[in-house]
Structures are given as C-alpha cells and as structure tokens.
Design a protein around this nucleic acid. Structure first.
Lengths: 340, 340
DNA sequence: CCCCTTATGCTCAAAATGAGTATATATGGA
DNA sequence: TCCATATATACTCATTTTGAGCATAAGGGG
C-alpha cells in the first residue's frame, strides 16, 4: 500500500451548462485563474490550442467529498457557484492526459455535469460561457439538418469507410455513419452525441484526432475539414463535453432537469425554447404545453407577461412537489417517426 | 504535485449480475482469493460480518485502463471472466472506507456493473453467486407487495418520521416513505432501489447504519428489524449493489441489455422470467411478446423446445443488428396506472 | 379421450401521441 | 379606428401505443 507506483492523481472537471440567447453554453476556465502550483498541472495549450473545462486536482486533505472539491475549483477558476451537480463518468485510460505523458503520475478524471440558470445574476460578468454548438456544429437540428452533415461529414465518413480493406468492415463503418447521422432508414437520435464525436474522432476528422493520432491524413483538405467540424479543446475535454451533452439530452426526457436551467418564473415558450436549445430539435408547441401541464410540472403564478410581441403569456413556475407525487416524468421531445 | 497528501488510492469494484433459478444474483469475493498484500487492504470482517464485492486496488503500472484492472480482479477473486461491463459511479466521500479510517490514504471507489450469462458454463463451479433479494427483501414484488414492506418497513419509517422535532420535516419524511415504497397515491417504482436503501439507512434501520452510526437505537427490537431487512455487506458494498440494481432496472427499459443475461438461444418465457427477476415485477405475457417481437429484438431460430410442460415453445435468438437499425428500444415493464 | 400445462394469436377499450384548426389578445402602423 | 401580424391558448382528430383479457393451439399424463 502507498507504493509510489500505485498512487494516482485524481482530477475533477465540470461541464457546467446554461442556456442563453436560445443557445446552450458551457463554462470554460479563465486565463490566470490558476494558482502557480496548479498552473503547471493544467497549463493551457499544452498540446493544442483550445479552451479547457474548469478542473483541478482533488485534494483529500481539503475536500471531504469529490463534489465539494469540484465546486471549489469551478468557483476559483470561473467565479461561478454551481447549483445542480451530477457525476458523469470517470475517465482513466492511460495516455489520455498530457501530464502523465510527461512522466508524472497516472491521472484519473472524474467528470461532472452541472446546470445553472444564467438569468438570476449568479454568473459574474467575467464568467466565460462558450457556445456548445460552436464545438459541435452537427448537433443543432433546430433549423433542420445542418449543412455540415450532408456536405462535409457524410462524404468524409463514406470516404473513410472505403479506406478499410475489409469489406465487412466497410459495411460496418457505413452502418455506424447512418446510425449516428440519421441517414437513409435511420432517424436522427439527438442523444447519440458521444457516439457521433467518437466516430468523427476515429475517422480522424476532428482536430483532436489529428493532434493525438499518428499516421493520419495530413493534407491541407483534411485540415480545412477539421476546422469546419467545430472548435477543438484541450486534452480530451471535447469528449467529456460530448458525454455531458448526451447525458443531459437523455435526462431531459425522464427527469424534470430543464428547470435547473430556467429562472424561477418563465413562460411556456421560454421553457420550450430551452428544451429545444439543449436537445437541438424543434418541438410541437401545442403538444409541448399539453405534456408539461398534464404532467403537473408547472403551475401558473397568475401574472401575465406582455413583452412577447403577441398575446401576453401566462407566467409559470416549476412545481418541485411533482417529484414526490407519482412518477416524475421529464419533458419528452418526440423524434419524427419513420416507420411504415 | 505528487505530495503524499494529494495522492489517492483507487479501488475498482464490480457488481456482476446474473439470473439463475428466476433469481437475480451477484458475485461475491471468495475467501482466500487475495494475495497477502491485498488481504490487509480488503480484509473481510473489518467492521461488519458480510460478503464483499470483488474488488482491488487499481495499479496504474499494470492496468492500461480501469476496466482491464477490474476484469483482472474479478477473475482472480472469483474465477469469472466478465463479458458486458459498464461503469456505474465513483464513490469518494471521506470516511466511507475502512482502510482510510485506520489512517491510510484516501480511498476512491469506482464501481462497475457487469452482466453475465450463467448458462454457458462461463462461471466456474467455485464462483460464489448470492441472491440479490436476500440483501434487498423489499425489492421483490413479483408475488405482490412483500410482507416486510407493510409489516416492518412502513411502520418503522412512520415511527422514524415522528421522531423529528420539526413538523415540516415529519411531513417530508412521510413523503419520502410514500414515494419510495409506493404507499397511498404513489405507485411502486422499481427503479428507486438506491433511494429506498438510502432512506432505510438514514432512518437507521439497516444493519450497516447501526454499524456506522452513532447515537442510534440500540434496542433489541431494532436489531431484530435490521435482520429482517436483508443481509448486510462489508463497507458500503450494499449501497453500491443498490446503485447497480437501480441502474440495471432502468437500463432494461431503453437498451437491450437483458440479452447479456441470456444464453444464446431462449424461449420468450425464459426471456420474460429474466426480465421479471431483475425488475422484480410481473409483466403481461402476451403484451411482452408483442413488445419484444414488434421491436425486432429477437428472431426465431426455427427450433422448437418441448420440455416446457405444455405446448412446445419456439426458440429465439437475439438480433444484435437491431441496435444499428433505427432506435434501439429496451424491454419496458409497465407499472400499473393509478391516474384518474 | 379428458385434463393439465404452456404457447401463441387476436380483440378491444383506454391513453398517449403527432399534427392540425380555431380563437384570443397583445403590438404597431395605415 | 381598423388591420396586419405576432404570439398564446383551446380544442379536435386520426393514429399509435398500452393494458388487459379471451380464444385457440399443441404438447404430456392419466
């Protein structure tokens, strides 16, 4: 016990999500927010230009729980005090993290998903919220299928499939492409965020794959494509981001987590726009309100808001009691049916 | 970096589940399966009699990934080679683990859920599979509400609620009781395994709470009740078990994971019985087959089996292709409706 | 053969879902 | 004032999904 070889450094990182201007955003670390001792550990630009998630090294002396440590790091590095927090995943593969490549300890990263409401001024002015879809341009289907899917991704993945020598493997790759990006018989499944990112990574199309990988295509055109596939991030942070996004989209449907992203009161359209921003798909307005109201998730405050440009909207608030009542349903977004 | 104070020991543990004799079971560590060096670390009976999950200390030198380490430990300690494995949760609260209480390092536990099929002789004869419901007697609702719920748990939780000085808190406790155990308006939700265990722990009713806690009820009757609330386990392993059980029950509904518990071919009744064993509730036979067949999850092999004691059953196999086709639905178990 | 068992096919009502149409009530400009 | 244009909200309707049950098929054992 306690051999040097068996000890491990644990890094805690957060994907803190909010929605503003109809756009899902996440918190990145501010420059100069690190103590000197930590700066070396997490120093930016170690091997790729790109933002980094707020994170830090877990200190068992100081932090009674992992979550406490996480909240402290996020506060130090961004000024934001987190509300709702849930654990996402623990990443521990060798070679994942720059620090251990320099010959340090093995690094384990525990990733968290946090949700905050921008509206209530919780977030200090300096906080650095970046657009999700700037990093995942293929994930926003609110205006229909994004151009980049048909014009760049699908052709590039077809080409990648052809590169395989084995014809079974070619078919497998094509099948993954169709399943991930909703081509042909398959339907777009907004939850498969991680699968899609990993497919693009495996195919060597995103910038991080080109950074990490050896023997990949180094042509200028491959570089141009990578730029169209969103902004890269430090280390494997974009993968963690994809994990968070997928989990959030999934959770939206069976737990009332949207409300963590809302101000205390809101109109049903605001609620709908938030769901749409996160899930990346449009929903049917009338059915959405039917669902939300029938499930008893909200109640009218009685107030009416008329700054909406049309008929004034009723103001609602979340009814947290619902969780203790019967089953707590989330807000389901319906995917278009493609059956017979 | 690398201060002694910041280094952490990482423990990998598995809840390996199978179903045999219509009963969900999980793998426990065999006596004498540990190397001397590890034995001190994980020695049994440190502070409570009870089984332990197979687990071991992650060694970054030896294990390229966490999963590889996990598989090695499970094989060493039980002789079982795991198939399907997924990460559950990382537990890191201070004071959770006996070793750190003796003044050693802080211990982080990464828990995994594994699923195996008993039928194919994968499991060596020595492997030690324990009944899930022996540890969670309140979770098996296949024969209707278990006696222990109405006769022991509900009264004890009501008494616990009364103990609170604050009347709001009393109502809160009662609400949790109703929500967890399906009393009054609430309906039994088989997924809330962890919530239920934690409630019982918080109320000081299970043996582990009496072991860990201070100032709890030490009367003989409390001891008798704890014995009716299932077998305790080492450390917080029963909590990890509850986490796994809840996750498995939940996953059953949206991913075709049951098949990891089945032999390659099976009848629809066998499939149904497996789902029932895990979820702990009965399902409607005709609707179950409708669901499974319509979703395209299985295909008939053409063979017929007539050792069933009635009309011979068609033999089926899993159709893994379904995952790549459209959306991959799981096997939903329906909870009875209690609306209007 | 009857009677037991399990397998499998089919029906039916209730509820949920997807997609509209219709009406209400604000704003701003002709 | 009245209209065009927003959005809000109510209601309808066909289809699908779900929960529940009946009916029939096909084995084995007396």
């Amino acid at each position: 016990m306690g051999h040097e070889s068996e000890s491990v450094v644990v890094e805690l990182g957060a994907v803190a999500v909010t929605v503003s201007d109809q756009s899902p955003r996440f918190l990145v670390r501010q420059e100069g927010s690190l103590k000197a001792a930590q700066a070396r550990f997490v120093r930016r630009g170690f091997d790729v230009a790109g933002d980094a998630l707020p994170s830090g090294q877990f200190d068992p002396e100081e932090h009674r729980t992992l979550e406490i440590g996480l909240r402290a790091f996020v506060y130090q590095q961004t000024g934001v005090r987190l509300g709702y927090v849930e654990q996402l995943y623990t990443f521990g593969d060798r070679g994942r993290h720059p620090v251990e490549r320099e010959g340090g300890h093995r690094v384990l990263s525990v990733g968290y998903l946090a949700l905050s409401d921008m509206s209530d001024g919780q977030s200090p002015s300096g906080a650095n919220w970046k657009s999700m879809y700037a990093h995942f341009p293929w994930e926003d289907w609110r205006q229909g299928a994004p151009q980049v899917v048909a014009e760049e991704i699908v052709p590039a993945l077809k080409a990648w499939a052809k590169q395989s020598s084995d014809s079974d493997d070619q078919e497998l790759r094509l099948g993954r492409m169709r399943g991930c990006f909703g081509q042909e018989a398959a339907v777009w499944d907004e939850e498969k965020v991680l699968e899609r990112y990993e497919l693009l990574y495996e195919a060597g199309l995103v910038a991080e794959a080109r950074r990490d990988g050896s023997g990949l295509d180094h042509s200028a055109s491959a570089h141009v494509l990578a730029e169209k596939l969103g902004l890269p991030m430090m280390s494997d942070h974009r993968r963690i981001l994809a994990t968070a996004m997928g989990r959030l989209r999934s959770k939206l449907k069976y737990r009332p987590v949207v409300f963590e992203l809302m101000s205390p009161t809101f109109t049903l359209l605001e609620l709908q726009r938030t769901v749409e921003a996160v899930s990346g798909v449009r929903v049917h307005k009338q059915n959405f309100r039917r669902l939300v109201e029938r499930a008893g998730l909200v109640e009218a405050t009685g107030a009416v808001l008329n700054q909406t440009g049309g008929r004034p909207a009723a103001e609602f608030r979340y009814r947290p009691e619902v969780v203790h009542e019967l089953v707590a349903p989330g807000v389901r977004v319906s995917s278009p049916r493609k059956f017979s």
